[in-house]
Design a protein around this nucleic acid. Sequence first.
DNA 1: CGCGCCATTCAAAGCGCTTTGGATCTGTTT
DNA 2: AAACAGATCCAAAGCGCTTTGAATGGCGCG
Lengths: 366, 366
Amino acid sequence: MDFDQTYKGPYCPLTQIALAGSNAMNLKQLSEILGLSQTTVSRALNGYPEVAERTRLRVQHAAQKHNYQPNIGAQRLARGRSMTIGHVIPLSTQHEMVNPVFADFIAGAGERYSACGYDMKLTIVDDQNEEDIYRDLKSRGSVDGIIVHGPLMNDPRIPLLQELDLPFVVHGRASDIETPYCWVDVNNASAFQRAGEFLLSLGHRRIGLINGLEHMDFAHRRRAGLVAALEAAGITPNPDYLHAGEMTEINGHNAMKAMLALDTPPTAVVVASFIAALGVRRALDEAGLRMARDVSVITFDDDLSYLRNGDSIPIFTATRSSVRQAGRLSADLLISHIENPTAAPEHKLLEADLIIGSSTGPVPQE
Amino acid sequence: MDFDQTYKGPYCPLTQIALAGSNAMNLKQLSEILGLSQTTVSRALNGYPEVAERTRLRVQHAAQKHNYQPNIGAQRLARGRSMTIGHVIPLSTQHEMVNPVFADFIAGAGERYSACGYDMKLTIVDDQNEEDIYRDLKSRGSVDGIIVHGPLMNDPRIPLLQELDLPFVVHGRASDIETPYCWVDVNNASAFQRAGEFLLSLGHRRIGLINGLEHMDFAHRRRAGLVAALEAAGITPNPDYLHAGEMTEINGHNAMKAMLALDTPPTAVVVASFIAALGVRRALDEAGLRMARDVSVITFDDDLSYLRNGDSIPIFTATRSSVRQAGRLSADLLISHIENPTAAPEHKLLEADLIIGSSTGPVPQE
DNA sequence: CGCGCCATTCAAAGCGCTTTGGATCTGTTT
DNA sequence: AAACAGATCCAAAGCGCTTTGAATGGCGCG
């Protein structure tokens, strides 16, 4: 814990902030208007059974009429719960990419939070002290639970959160962690295995991979899946065909370009992200090659709202799984575990669809 | 206001939630350990001057040692402030795109919030009742201020927030609103005017526009800027060359494809987003045309972390302005107005850079 | 009639923090 | 020496809600 350099608490003689006299209607006022006790009004609004139905209706109408909303800080304090779920987004200065998948995941999760009365709190953490953030979140009572994004193969956040006894759901998994915990993940291995098998069935034997950073768990599994398909077909993966890096358009482009420069380039590639696949297409265009005819491409497609894979006919053959849906499921799972803390950890494994588009075709004749 | 269908308050006989006995260290305990009053401990930690420096150090050490963090709900209640800034993301079911720019903006703003001791609260609102959300936020004291995303030309949120007396900063502007308010915006008009002038200087006369939805303020201004450049050169914009739609890869592709099918297609296009520009490139590739040589392309580039415009040589000629930086500036502006509520509204107009890349060239000979 | 039993309602005690309005103790001033 | 000022510290009163434990009133029943 460090006492922040830039924020020193409420003492600020220069800009004396008028402590907002909260002009909003409060419980006391409302109960006086109604000629009822605060207890009864509170219970009426919170659905307790020991209040007469007539009274409840009267209270609800009055609340609506006077635009009463319980103060959230007071509720948090009194209930000992924050009704808030935290998302921590690490953003080191080296690796300062915001995961493009993030916005859609959040949108899915946020839908469910709203429906269940939870708030979403986002924390952008730009240094190494991510651990401190979690400890803080716990000890200040800022959140009732946490979503863990972008797990590594042996992610230290998982044991930490377990130790802190803060409910959490991982979006993804951590292969090297044995103890049970809650997660929601796509079956990355099977998706890429099927992609590989599909390419093999088209006659491809020289199959490349443009993967995400392989200390990320999802990338590790995708590689394993593809390699499994190749090896099952008696093919030893060619190291020159295996690329891993941040999943940007540029990296996709550069990786494809590098492979095209080989003596015997692959006839097909599997790409770990739609954005990288756009870069692959650019590299092919620059080389005067056409997708499907010259090089087959399969991409993973997170079904992002702003990057749809074509309207009617898909542009790319793809393994598709909606990350927004994963957001919804993660939110529901977390909420259910917050409200039922003794339940055993649960998880959900989603299967990606293999969508046939116009970026794959039979292996070209030599 | 409506009492949510799905969430009925704390009464839930089935899943009796153990009200977390908040095992964390609190102020009372800490003050007892130190043999001081809660007052003094609180003041010591909050930087008040009337506590002896020796005492302050002793308190800080003890706080650190016992891992004391003030409970956030209690602080909110006592201070009458939430130290939270709200971002409301509308997401109607028809128009269910998550703005791809959003993640980077949030990352920029979040950096500043963390540095200044504020939390960020995201609300995804999927129906029409966005107005209720703002009223709620105000009357529950959930947030101290709000960032308004994606303003329309005459955005009803602005007068609403003014009426509610809730500090806010608009990311963008609303052309039709006269009353002053805080905003941070790129000079969209000047950016697209310069883009137009640059194309004119290369000899282009048939210049197209692939714009965002033109009820969005930014899109309206971009169009105005481009049209101004054309008209200044004595060119009346051809309606067939003016497209507006959601800024997706597919729409960019379709708009370009439509223009290429004209008897006299444009020799250059200005595109309102990088993602749409990728679609434009695809349309050109499919038509066997090359960027720069056959058709010049200029795009607006928000400098998204996951969509960089090339590493060394930019792929596209572009008007560039970092949306992440806009996030930082918006956050700083909002915080300064929250802490100094009487200050007159301020705003910041950012100029985009015109970056010359390899997607533009002289007009082809007929 | 007197008793117990629901069904309702309420007063008051927190939740953990900030802040007001002194109190106490030095040291300084007249 | 009395009075005052400044530097520290404190007890207690909130902030607005939830929840405990008890009171109230109506009603049926022996």
